[in-house]
Design a protein around this nucleic acid. Sequence first.
DNA 1: GATGAATGAGAATTCATTCAT
DNA 2: CATGAATGAATTCTCATTCAT
Lengths: 229, 229, 229, 229
Amino acid sequence: MEKSTRKASRSEVAPGPPGDDPRRLRENTLIEARRSLILDAARAAFFELGLEGASLREIAKRAGYTPGALYSYFASREEIYAALLGESLDRLKHQVDTAATTAAIETAAPAIAAANLRAQALAFFAFYRDNPRDLDLGFYLFNGTRPRGLTPELNQQLNARLKSSLLPIQQALIALGQPEPTAIAETTAIFAQAVGLLILNQTGRIRLFRQDAQSLFERHVDGLLARLA
Amino acid sequence: MEKSTRKASRSEVAPGPPGDDPRRLRENTLIEARRSLILDAARAAFFELGLEGASLREIAKRAGYTPGALYSYFASREEIYAALLGESLDRLKHQVDTAATTAAIETAAPAIAAANLRAQALAFFAFYRDNPRDLDLGFYLFNGTRPRGLTPELNQQLNARLKSSLLPIQQALIALGQPEPTAIAETTAIFAQAVGLLILNQTGRIRLFRQDAQSLFERHVDGLLARLA
Amino acid sequence: MEKSTRKASRSEVAPGPPGDDPRRLRENTLIEARRSLILDAARAAFFELGLEGASLREIAKRAGYTPGALYSYFASREEIYAALLGESLDRLKHQVDTAATTAAIETAAPAIAAANLRAQALAFFAFYRDNPRDLDLGFYLFNGTRPRGLTPELNQQLNARLKSSLLPIQQALIALGQPEPTAIAETTAIFAQAVGLLILNQTGRIRLFRQDAQSLFERHVDGLLARLA
Amino acid sequence: MEKSTRKASRSEVAPGPPGDDPRRLRENTLIEARRSLILDAARAAFFELGLEGASLREIAKRAGYTPGALYSYFASREEIYAALLGESLDRLKHQVDTAATTAAIETAAPAIAAANLRAQALAFFAFYRDNPRDLDLGFYLFNGTRPRGLTPELNQQLNARLKSSLLPIQQALIALGQPEPTAIAETTAIFAQAVGLLILNQTGRIRLFRQDAQSLFERHVDGLLARLA
DNA sequence: GATGAATGAGAATTCATTCAT
DNA sequence: CATGAATGAATTCTCATTCAT
């Protein structure tokens, strides 16, 4: 299983001297474009067929490559998945940020923080509700649990992206007068509630209780806001 | 083409006449013992290697069998996983039930319901906190998401066991004066909070916020109880 | 594949001294009854599921035995099939004989031979038309071609039974004035025509020509009779 | 669950632009050569060991490949068998066609049709007489009876090839003044007679009657021609 | 005579990965 | 950079057969 990684994948190549010569730059751009293309194929395969169906062969076929060719861009299948996850977290962050801005602009001053918090929490929830495969992606790399093909650095990168999606919520809580420790605790609770509900939703377990994930999540957020008011 | 597929696995053998003849009893016990042995091997393989590593071959090897031999005890690999999950849920239920009894005995009358609720919710949480692979087990069979090899009947059985572990909490909420819909909603919220925190905990994501899953869960439950008081 | 046959199957056991002692006789009868029971199960399995489905396990299950038990009665799976074929040929012979008798009784003297021939040829054809699996049986043991599990003696036995089914036709031809060599040739031609049509019929190949096996066979027989008249 | 099953086997690759570029041509040729090599191995295995013995493993071993490698050339084991059968029918057709041409050239005008018929019928018979395993091939794929792994389209293709081998005989009968229905019936009878005799021959059953398949078949054809004259 | 347990070989198929070209 | 070919190990599952009890 381990085997020494045979060949440095392009993304890990040192960028060379800072006074980047234009040729190398052009090449890097080309390479990035092709990596993107492969990731698009991988995402499509993963979303349509699930993990089992998203084999290297399938990804390669969709990207218009032969399987071997992918190894010029990624060192292994795992690395592709990891890149997919990174990009998923970027989309998450973008959706949460957009929600915040919108709320901030449209809302009168005193209630801004509360509205922001609500909007962002709901945007976070909505992202995974509407893109359940992105949730899968996050879990896959942990084998449901512990990291699989994640190097520690990669793991940290991914963590940072995730954290930056939740930071605005935490800041809103502080703006609403909560001491920082409480703000952190409540943010984490919101995160956990979202994750829990999304999973119950997706596994169908929530039907056991004839409940609706969305309204339960709103209940959680609104209850919190009510207590703060 | 048809073949009689689903071979009867030993556990489904008719129990025979009520005045159980000792020979059959002994045989059933032996068979059960060997099923147990196989399940132990499967659990160990699963816990150590994850779902992918817990192949029939691996399970057989650990149980000291050839792969084919397992088919005398389980009709398929999926049936083994299902048995594993079923047994896990039994242990969960037992732990929750025990917690309830203990609380009931040790607490004065009026606060019984609240104490029960707290004890049971915490027992539920503790079970998965202390046996993280049992959580995995539940999720694995859903491929992170949707069921894999679980037949609908099996799925229902497992759902029923899960539900019966959470029912006491719901009943306690009713005993505390909540209308049934609210009781159900809060029970589901507790369940979701537990699942979310456990996952954050296990994936290490909770460290992002320097939080502790256990105290956050207690915070959730205690907050609820405070609002009810 | 070959392995030295481990244990003489009961059917091969020497019958003992001619002055058969009654106990052994009783035992032999019992054994024959049980062999019959197993063959019934085998036939049912073969007819319902085809060769692939008629595994030893399936046969044993239908006979109410465990797989190992069959080895007390037959030395191998092949031997079961061979016994099945023998019994099939007996039924064939019986059907042809019955047709002859019937025709003989119901028909006036001069045309007896012709009527007999026709009736017997058609009975031969009808047997396999109505019991296509019996035709399969015959071919299986030849792997489409050459014998599989057939010992030479067994093969001779089976040949004798087959021949005795066709002998009446040959005799009728002689009675109709044909020299023996011609009678033999025509009998063989009838046999071949039957086999060919039956196979074309069963494999669906005859539909290629939008023809009907039964009427083509009658055409063959009637054409022959016309030429003899 | 779905996965894109039927992987395109090389033979289905689009032929590219009509002005075939030489590289692709060379590649196709190479691929065809290797498919041929595999088919040779398959044929050998089939002829020596029968269908049961001609497993993918065995074919691969004989072709000097690992089992997995075959899947680059054929989508499944069944596809290999089908290709084998298709190629057998092509050889049959070629042999029958050749016989026709020869007869046409060498024979005076009025008797052309009769000579053609005779030559073609005998060529059909001779093909299978001389290549008995090719007869097996046709029957094997029907499990002695009904099709095994043949898709309906494949089955139709094969039927068409078979039919085109027999069409000339039918046409000759029409040329000899027979109405079409009679021509079809007699062609089918010839086909059936050939198949029946070939099988009796190959299984050794014909020795029962001390007959010779070849002369019996000629007898059938010549008898027919005599009646038409 | 029969059972239950197990073996061991074999089935088709899939896959990530390697590597010469 | 990309291909096409191939490997080799893995997958689940089925089966005839053996044999101690």
